[in-house]
């Protein structure tokens, strides 16, 4: 298993995972979210092609109520 940080918390994922497959496990499909990998935004068009590696830092954000 690969260990990476998602939203600041350690998470284990299967080797060979990419951003798109990770999103599927987070039940975010069909929702609006944005992904930042090691400080760089990963555009939606690149999710499937972006492979995740051990030690990656991932941010997954959504829109919430705010003023």
């Amino acid at each position: 298993m690969l260990e990476l940080q998602i939203n600041g918390r350690p998470q284990q994922i299967p080797p060979g995972s990419n951003v798109a497959s990770l999103i599927a496990t987070l039940h975010l499909e069909g929702r609006r979210y944005a992904i930042e990998l090691n400080g760089e935004i990963v555009p939606k068009s690149r999710h499937a092609a972006t492979t995740l590696n051990h030690g990656d830092q991932l941010e997954v954000v959504i829109a919430v109520g705010g003023g």
């Binding site: 998602i6 939203n7 600041g8 918390r9 998470q11 987070l26 039940h27 975010l28 929702r31 609006r32 979210y33 944005a34 941010e59 997954v60 954000v61 959504i62 829109a63 919430v64 109520g65 705010g66 003023g67």
Partner: peptide, 21 residues
């Protein structure tokens, strides 16, 4: 309308409706 951008709660809100719905 204004919205805030926040980390999603991993594993805690599967299937819950979201603001933008």
């Amino acid at each position: 309308i204004t919205v805030a951008i926040r980390r999603v709660n991993i594993g805690q809100n599967a299937g819950e409706p979201s603001l933008l719905e």
